[in-house]
Design a protein around this nucleic acid. Structure first.
Lengths: 166, 166
DNA sequence: TGTCAACTTGACATCGTGTCAAGTGAGCCA
DNA sequence: TGGCTCACTTGACACGATGTCAAGTTGACA
């Protein structure tokens, strides 16, 4: 909080006048990023897809591109998850919204008859949600040094391999 | 440190006589768990495998069963990664050892001609390493509530789908 | 009996979050 | 012009966690 106040050019106490806690500052930051980066617009392509497979690809592309944008604040929120219940709920809510996107893609795959027969929609959503988690992106792009393009291509392939039969 | 000292029945300062820092206590704990749970023995099956595919399955099974054992201390070490360089290095070392297992399975797959043609061994190892990360286990087993058996079966399938052609 | 090692109590420094009190200064309105 | 409000300031403090330091106790062993 001191660092941020200094960077902004106000006193630490003034920062607390705007954001009562560190968690609320981080949460407000994610909301602001969403707005500035027009996350809703980016998801339009996935909502417009005609087939489940297309929707899956479009959603993975949109979310995959979003991750690096919120990763800074996301990492901070994730680190607080086990100590600050407010931060935990806030991040869980965001991840739940992302899960909706996963569920929608899975439902469309199921409608097309393209979902693996041995998976329920819930299990398939869990799986896709995990593959697309911020942690996997961190692992591949930060720890392993993959480019964003490499990440995207491989994760799209992996999502198909995980959910489609054969 | 206070909680642990109280649980053990000694003073906080006595704990510091045994482990100079919190990080070193956690690292010593992982070493102790490895020994008590005979991790080396568990990996014997994977080292004895005749084919790459068998080795992959055996390694995934061994590591997948290991994760819940070290998850408590692992989570603590992971949380310290961005603040404590010593903890960071210690956990990175352990994960690197795990990566060796991934690389060995990948190499055997490549020897058998069973590795996807469009993957280098390094990329394949990165991918397998990420799929098997503690974070993915947390996501599926803790956040999504999967059983250990479900996790294992699905991750084995996913590892095959990710690395083998077709 | 003396020594040593493990442990004790108790105090203290540091760092980060969050709170509280009192004061300042600019804009605005009657 | 006088007074009000709002955003901000400085400065202090509580609290919890890690880690350090000093001095004393206790029991085993030579």
């Amino acid at each position: 909080m001191s660092d941020i106040a200094r960077a902004v050019g106000i006193s630490r106490q003034a920062l607390y006048l705007h954001f009562p806690t560190r968690a609320e500052l981080l949460i407000a930051t994610t909301r602001h990023i969403d707005e500035v980066k027009d996350i809703d617009g980016r998801l339009a392509a996935s909502r417009a897809a005609a087939t489940g497979s297309e929707r899956l690809d479009a959603f993975v592309a949109a979310w995959g591109a979003y991750i690096p944008e919120i990763h800074g604040v996301g990492r901070a929120l994730m680190a607080m998850q086990h100590t600050d219940p407010e931060a935990s709920r806030a991040w869980a809510d965001r991840m739940d919204a992302m899960r909706q996107g996963c569920a929608a893609a899975v439902a469309m795959l199921a409608r097309d008859g393209d979902l693996r027969a041995d998976l329920t929609e819930t299990r398939a959503t869990d799986l896709l949600w995990s593959i697309l988690s911020v942690r996997v992106w961190e692992h591949l792009c930060l720890d392993c040094g993959w480019s964003q393009a490499d990440y995207l291509a491989e994760i799209q392939r992996l999502a198909h391999a995980a959910l489609l039969p054969h």
